[in-house]
Design a protein around this nucleic acid. Sequence first.
DNA 1: GTGGTCTAGACCACC
DNA 2: GTGGTCTAGACCACG
Lengths: 135, 135, 135, 135
Amino acid sequence: MINIDARSSTPIYEQIILGIKELIIKEIISPGDKLPSVREMANMLTTNPQTVSKAYNELERLNIIETLRGKGTYVSMEYKPKLEEEKMLKFKKDLKKLLMDAHYMGLNENQINLIFKEVYVNLLGTDHEGGSINE
Amino acid sequence: MINIDARSSTPIYEQIILGIKELIIKEIISPGDKLPSVREMANMLTTNPQTVSKAYNELERLNIIETLRGKGTYVSMEYKPKLEEEKMLKFKKDLKKLLMDAHYMGLNENQINLIFKEVYVNLLGTDHEGGSINE
Amino acid sequence: MINIDARSSTPIYEQIILGIKELIIKEIISPGDKLPSVREMANMLTTNPQTVSKAYNELERLNIIETLRGKGTYVSMEYKPKLEEEKMLKFKKDLKKLLMDAHYMGLNENQINLIFKEVYVNLLGTDHEGGSINE
Amino acid sequence: MINIDARSSTPIYEQIILGIKELIIKEIISPGDKLPSVREMANMLTTNPQTVSKAYNELERLNIIETLRGKGTYVSMEYKPKLEEEKMLKFKKDLKKLLMDAHYMGLNENQINLIFKEVYVNLLGTDHEGGSINE
DNA sequence: GTGGTCTAGACCACC
DNA sequence: GTGGTCTAGACCACG
């Protein structure tokens, strides 16, 4: 379910975080669902339990999952996003970085737009009722 | 001209790369312009010359700048971007990550769009004659 | 009557201990009163009987409750608190930790005092005849 | 400088966190000061670098210290506390727990007050200009 | 030199 | 069974 690229420069634990976030956003796993235990997940991904544990901990700090003592780890029932100034600044910085990369790849506005749309739809579902991301 | 944040998690050498890219994109420096020497730049940024050197090397590898032996470092006259498959994949991956973050910050399509537009215009100049990123 | 939060970092058995202590302090249950059996309590709290059992054992060790063989578990008639050196040290350590947290939350003396008073009164009843915690 | 009790039930990494917080609050180390490197600290405390690292990471998440890439770890220059509802609730819960313990140790209001005062003064300096914590 | 990541293996508390 | 903590030892990126 989650693909790990051991040769990637992004740490394994972060790939796990991203993978789980994606599974939740795509509603492949839902609030209340139980995640594989740390050891199970470690076996599945042929990695170390500590690495999985670190990912789970990070996700718990983000209130995305929660652990029930001795019973396992679950997708949080109620995730209430809180818009922090700090996060927003980081987000814009990252976006700027991304757009600069796009520029240096020779992409123009239209091309960026198309890719943006493609990734968005792939992540958050079909392009509902004509409501394109670019309208 | 270039802001360095030693506390940031992005390496300093990468912040330098981003800074120079931004200066070029914003046309504050242009093809053919001479860049400060490694040592000058290091002084300006109060950082280590080795760090600046690493940034210059990377930029040269990307054909964004070029060093003329004994004469200094210049912004490349002819930078021909080529869309490499690999870069594109990384780009989409980064974009996906960004959109997931946005989702978990509670941003909806419209809000993402607005921010996207804001950052784009801020980077690449005023919204020129109807050519909005979102049309 | 007792609130259990499975997500909390404090073990469930300890939450039960705290809950029973609170009921006694607030005189909702009194010395001599019978406590629900382990199984009853486990049903009430939708938790594991072993967990309740552990809480009861701990409370008995503290002389706060006592089990009469075959008759059930009761709130102790004569509980004689003794100030053990060890407990006192732990108490001060915990208090220190709490005050450091308060400090890092930006609370000043007055604010800490107010909260202290609020919690105390809420726990041990109305502010009886001038006997404020802060006088 | 920091005392570690390997037999304590509180994890070593948390003892390190508490120790550093205390050193800062008592102004034994100040904003801008460099902390011992992870390895140095590990040697000083005869513990594992990973354990120290975990403590440093936690402190960084709290904005209490910050790491400068490749240069070491420093006490944050500007710590701006932000009063969150969540933290406040946890604080009151912990305080309630503490007061219940105090009650069960047989401490009355005055005694609790005295201990409170003692710990406070010990932590945050001498009792300035008659401004007792309990006025 | 610095911190960050990963592994393998161990022990523990909790449910 | 579950996750949490710790150790010893290794490799890597960064400055």
